[in-house]
Amino acid sequence: MANSYSTAKSDLQLVPFEISRKHQLAEDVYLISVPRKSDFEAGQVVAVSLSDGQTPRLYSIASGNAGPEISILFNIKKDGFLSPQLANSKEGDRILVSAPFGNFTCRDEKACWIASGTGIAPFASMFFSGQWKGKTLIHGGRTVDSFYFQDDIAPVMKESYIRCCSQENGLGLYQGRLTSYLKEQTYLDLSQKYYLCGSPEMVVDVRDILISKKVPFENIISEIYF
């Protein structure tokens, strides 16, 4: 019944790479990098698998688009099949990665980036690609070590970088969930775009809050882990 392969399929052709770097950023959270062999736009994703025939998973690229590597950020999913194996992989191991694709891209417009957990990845890519001017970044995490890349982002974005920590206190952190932070805001720029990336629960909750504060839904663009 199958006919010829289409462009839709070719996006997910997986090519072997060697892991060039692996960093543990927090308990159960890792950054894995492979050499960059193609151009990409910050905000795009790659499909990743460890072996032929294994169903690939999509991961947002977390690195800048001019760097020598493509990096992905992930946490170990309790019932996941790929993330525990990825966490056990080593530098030099073989990994299958697709060409970058997707259109969760932002560029030069004024915008607010809102992320939870490893949902920071596409915004990290945008940041490392030099797209941070005119942006506000709101990042929600449970613990003080949840704010991946904060050492890079904080000195540059300064007060436009808001870290909301729901379970611990820390210097420079808003104590509470990012949804609480947003609810407390008396002014939101209704004309700018709001880019959301994270768990379905976060995206749905934040979108409802923004809409309740009169942000037009047309200005809300979301990417969800699945």
Partner: peptide, 22 residues
Amino acid sequence: RKLMPINTVYPINKVLSEVRSW
């Protein structure tokens, strides 16, 4: 993509080119 977040990774042309290949 404003109605359906999935469209950021699988836009309409990808979906249609898949069904057209069958």
